[in-house]
Write a protein that binds this DNA or RNA. Structure first.
Lengths: 235, 235
DNA sequence: TAAACATTTTTTCTCGAGATTTTTTTGTAC
DNA sequence: GTACAAAAAAATCTCGAGAAAAAATGTTTA
């Protein structure tokens, strides 16, 4: 886990070196993708076989997930997958729009040329994977990773560590809901065009337009999630 | 640890039942009060004697502190007390004002009579402890606890779980800096009057005034911290 | 002297087994 | 059939010892 980044979710860059980190990453993926259902119990005795680690190590992995608010822990009563709900996603979206609009404005104000080119590069990589996604050559995981990288690159020049820390948590939470939409019929939407316009406004240092586009982009996903059947969030 | 509250810091209400929670609470206190210096290493082998628990249990306590961003962890390199700096506190203050102003406005919009009376009661308890504090009958810990309870009571009706979650983290971080001011000569300030005016505006449902007073209240502490000698944050 | 390497010491990480607590099941009375 | 109590089962929590890694120390060489 890196020290400069406050967030445990920022482990990835350095390949995981401990078994606990490894189990953490696997568990996180399985929770975000819904393999472990929201609200369900996470029994250490059962999971240690699945993830091939000892009980103590698995507990550490679960404790790391508490930092991401993907798992809740209750003394003497074990661990649970954090529940999801439409209310929760509305709250996530609201807080995210507030923080992300501010973070983007700050990033635009502080960003240099390196920041600019990193954003362009991230957009390019995202575009490429989108093409392959349409052809079925590549999985959603890969798109999700590059989508995150793109959004992250836009905010990279924001000097507020705490804003970025909270946003990384909220972004990851949002991913749970984005995955929910995958199989379902969705409203027509051109995500690529949204990203493209967002990048353009950002590069032109038009903070107001960029923030507005970003907020709209985030809220659009909420609209889509709202259309899901009511039983999509648990059962 | 409670489940409805997302934040590990919300353990207190239920008296700690596991040794790990107990060690967590003690460690947290010792970090917030500066007994373990910012940036210093937290060696498990050494601490387990101090807190009278096994290595695994102590690691769990430290992992819980990572959730509060009071401790950082780095794979294969152990735990450290999260560092502090003026820059960090400026960031904390900025994000706090944004979130707290919004949370208070929401709380005022949603609060009922029970919420009102709880706020009045919390203010009363804070006032009482202030009297005894001046007489030296009671320690700063007690004042700090009731100060937190008062501020928490104001926001209690805010329906945004995530805003409250992040604020509870930021509030706890702020406490580290407030403790720094304790011994030092400080600018003249009537905290009681600030609280009083804040409560009044809140009870009158004047969201605009209340938020303004709250932001001012929070920023005032930043001014005080700014006056500290430069070597106050580490060394 | 400074850098490169090998050795020792310290610290972190990991596991499995036992103690404690919670949950479930079973049994009994009303 | 319901309510309550006791026993059994399951799960969590805790510890100490050993394996793996990092840091510190000492030695050699240019």
């Amino acid at each position: 886990m890196s020290q400069d980044s406050l967030h445990a979710a920022a482990i990835e860059p350095n390949s995981p070196k401990t078994l606990a980190e490894n189990a953490y990453l696997q568990l996180r993926h399985d929770i975000v993708t819904g393999k472990h259902r929201p609200g369900s119990k996470l029994r250490v005795e059962h999971l240690k076989k699945q993830y091939q680690v000892g009980a103590g190590t698995l507990r550490e992995a679960l404790l790391l997930l508490v930092t991401d608010a993907l798992v809740t822990v209750q003394g003497q009563r074990g661990f649970r997958v954090a529940p999801i709900s439409l209310d929760d996603f509305q709250d996530i979206t609201r807080v995210r729009t507030v923080l992300e609009a501010e973070a983007l404005a700050l990033s635009i104000a502080h960003g240099d040329e390196v920041w600019e080119s990193n954003a362009v590069a991230a957009f390019h990589r995202l575009t490429r994977v989108e093409e392959r996604l349409h052809q079925g050559d590549v999985g959603f995981d890969e798109w999700e990773a590059r989508n995150r990288a793109f959004h992250s690159s836009l905010l990279a020049a924001c000097p507020s560590r705490w804003t970025l820390h909270f946003l990384s948590i909220l972004y990851q939470q949002s991913e749970r809901y984005r995955r929910l939409v995958l199989g379902n019929p969705t409203v027509p939407r051109d995500v690529h065009a949204e990203h493209s316009a967002l990048l353009e406004a950002t590069l032109q240092r038009d903070a107001k337009t960029a923030s507005r586009l970003l907020v709209h982009h985030i809220e659009k996903t909420l609209e889509v999630v709202r259309l899901l059947p009511a039983d999509s969030f648990g059962e």
